[in-house]
């Protein structure tokens, strides 16, 4: 794990990618910082960070796109997977290298509250700022894990970047989109019915097993209908509630208001673990198919 981590980190900074990534984030955050905090005199860094989270889903794909895809394309993964190292360790090594790259600008931002302190900032708002920065770091970590996973399912860096960008954008805007979904029980039911059909299609595309996918789809739909007729009120607004789980930037709000909420920490951490696990599975699956 150590070896992979070191090499990955080095390669980040042997090419322009690492520098561009860090420079871009620092530039955006610092720009907002000087506008909101220094000129406009807002005392909390969250106003700057709030404007910045969109920048993350633009720049993170640039950092993560090559991580797995390039190894596969250049066949250097042959060295990794024939070495006496667990695949989990390889993936973890790579993920940690990404984390460290991202941590560099975040650590720099930790000094910004001290700059504001010169202009008379309270201890309380300092603490709030650090909680906000921690949330920002967690969001970035989750984005990195998603990017890592999407890089592992393709050989092409471009496809990896576009996929990551698309999916991160969806998670960013999904909060707004879900508020447009009508809250009635029947609308939720229709939403779920469509989702089950889509899942069945994806299952078929992946396994080419018609019986399994059709039966999964059928069982899902029947279960939905039974649940719907058993308890209609439960379905009210359920669709939006369930899918708001995908809205990873909304979980940031609590951090921005200085609330160190463990459910949200757990949300981000388990999201990272899930995507690292999926990356390992994607690598394994490719070796066996």
């Amino acid at each position: 794990m150590n070896a992979v981590f070191k090499r990955e980190l080095k390669s980040c900074f042997n090419s322009m990618t690492g520098y561009i990534f860090i420079a871009f984030i620092i530039f955006i955050v610092s720009m907002f910082f000087s506008l909101y905090n220094l000129y406009a005199g807002s005392s909390l860094i969250r106003n700057s960070l709030n404007g910045v989270s969109f920048a993350l889903f633009i720049i993170i794909p640039i950092l993560t796109m090559r991580v797995m895809a390039e190894e596969r394309k250049q066949k250097t993964d042959q060295l990794l997977y024939t070495s006496p190292v667990k695949i989990t360790d390889i993936v973890l090594g790579k993920y940690l290298a990404l984390e460290v790259t991202f941590l560099i600008p975040v650590i720099l931002f930790c000094f910004y509250p001290f700059i504001m302190k010169i202009y008379g900032k309270t201890e309380e708002s300092m603490a709030m700022d650090f909680v906000a920065l921690f949330g920002f770091f967690l969001l970035g970590s989750l984005y990195l894990a998603i990017g890592l996973f999407l890089s592992s399912i393709t050989e092409s860096q471009v496809i990896a970047a576009v996929l990551t960008f698309g999916i991160l954008m969806i998670t960013y805007f999904i909060g707004g989109l879900l508020s447009l979904v009508p809250g009635s029980a029947i609308a939720s039911l229709i939403g779920f019915v469509i989702v089950v059909i889509v899942v069945a299609f994806i299952l078929y595309a992946m396994t080419k097993h018609i019986v399994v996918s059709v039966s999964v789809g059928a069982v899902g739909e029947i279960a939905l209908l039974i649940a719907f007729f058993a308890n209609k009120t439960m379905f009210e607004g359920l669709f939006a509630k369930v899918f708001s789980v995908l809205d990873c930037s909304a979980k940031l709000d609590n951090f921005f208001y200085g609330i160190f909420d463990f459910t949200n920490v757990a949300y981000y951490v388990s999201g990272c673990v899930l995507f690292i696990f999926l990356t390992v599975q994607a690598v394994q699956k490719r070796r066996y198919s």
Binding site: A3, K6, R7, K10, N14, T76, L79, V85
Partner: peptide, 21 residues
């Protein structure tokens, strides 16, 4: 050969040695 183009042979071999434990 599974080589990382942006490394020198020495760096690469050190990395591979570490990888191999």
């Amino acid at each position: 050969p599974p080589l990382y183009m942006e490394m020198t042979p020495e760096e690469y071999l050190k990395f591979a040695a570490e990888l191999k434990g």
